[in-house]
Design a protein around this nucleic acid. Structure first.
Lengths: 225, 225
DNA sequence: CGGATCTGCAAACGCTCGTTATCAGAATCG
DNA sequence: CGATTCTGATAACGAGCGTTTGCAGATCCG
């Protein structure tokens, strides 16, 4: 036992195998597992994303699964968060690049988001459809959607000078915008909505802006009273 | 064998037990199973709605489960359809009673729907949240939501005289309305949106109408071109 | 080269699931 | 009463799951 410890110490300094050191190997395994999980969760669904199937897809064994994650839920949550952060980053970057105009900002944001999840429809399914598999995943989907909605509400408050407005209608309309957008995207991916992707982005932008402006009018009309 | 058959025939004529005949007993067992499934699916979620748990809740045994349903999926689909039909009936009845006015119709429809699924939040969870458990259930949720969306689109086409308009934006906006409404309802049930139920109905109606009118303007603006 | 670790595979454990069969006892009707 | 069906509980079966362990072989460093 004591021998093991001393040896471990001397070894842990380098920890190289196959030309890469321990941290990198572990990170690569983690990435492979997340990739395999995305493929399964995004195509065959939650029920198919078992530990064995994910490991098989990643060409790894359960041993390394439990080296990197404590649970199946932890992996799926990590995958969800990764995609959500990717989406948030894309949206924020597009918004920051767009000219200072409500319609242009909205178009940039929606365009970036739609392009991300239609370039890889698996991501859309993970974010919107398959995030209901387990209870922790459902909760996370909700929190993330709410976060996006508050992001939208914050942008709207900035643009229309409603910083002091505490009307719950702001939160309600933001929920409607984000939730409605998700439903349109799922419908488009399922082939229900027959438009090109550019048309889809334009339509979503138009609906988004018109709904947002309507909500703003409602809120301001109430505040005046 | 032949004896059994003749006996079965003479018995099947009445088939009474405990004062009720066979069809009624079977119907009551079916109703009890659906009730137990609603309780489990609407509170603990899809994972908890196992055959054993449903039977235990209904105070029946698996024997009667497979007497009334072939699968677990068949039960859950039947439950979903029952709630969806209940909602559709409530909405259509409210719309038919309301005065001939877009806002009044919308308020009646949304009020009826919101009251139904907030009087029994389990129904909301079954319709919107837990319908993603199995693949057939996910598909059904989509079909039903699309049906509601087309119902909305049809009403809008009637009211605004757009019978000949085939713009896909009509379907897109209907999807946004229905999907957004679902998300607001789930948020309200989760305590994220802090308004009274009457306020919720009013807000949803206002958002619904303003979004609908915005979509109509967009469609008409395009058609004019 | 040699001792030690890292890897990949496979089997195993305990559990729950859906589904089906068994069987004693209650209730029925002629 | 007696033959028969209906009831309810139980247990069994095979399968799949998440999770853990054991072990031969590849790869490393001194």
């Amino acid at each position: 036992m004591s021998i093991c410890e001393t040896v471990q110490v001397t070894r842990e300094v380098t920890g190289r195998y196959g030309g890469v050191d321990a941290a990198d190997r572990q990170a690569e395994r983690r990435a492979r597992l997340l990739d395999a999980a995305l493929e399964l969760l995004g195509t065959e669904g939650w029920q198919a994303a078992t530990v064995r199937a994910i490991c098989s897809g990643a060409k790894l064994t359960p041993r390394y699964f439990y080296e990197g994650f404590t649970d199946r839920d932890e992996l799926l949550l990590a995958l969800f968060d990764q995609i959500a952060q990717e989406a948030a980053a894309a949206v924020l970057e597009a918004v920051s690049r767009a000219p200072v105009d409500a319609r242009a900002k909205a178009h940039a944001a929606i365009g970036a988001f739609v392009e991300l999840v239609t370039d890889d429809p698996r991501k859309a399914r993970v974010l919107f459809a398959e995030a209901m598999g387990s209870e922790p995943l459902t909760r996370r989907r909700f929190e993330t959607l709410r976060m996006f909605a508050q992001l939208v509400a914050g942008q709207a408050r900035d643009f229309y000078g409603m910083d002091d407005v505490a009307d719950p209608l702001v939160e309600e309309s933001a929920l409607m915008l984000v939730g409605g957008l998700a439903e349109i995207l799922l419908g488009w991916l399922d082939g229900i909505v027959h438009v090109t992707r550019e048309q889809l982005i334009d339509d979503c932008t138009a609906l988004f802006v018109t709904t947002g402006e309507g909500a703003v009018r409602l809120v301001q009309g109430r505040a005046r009273r």
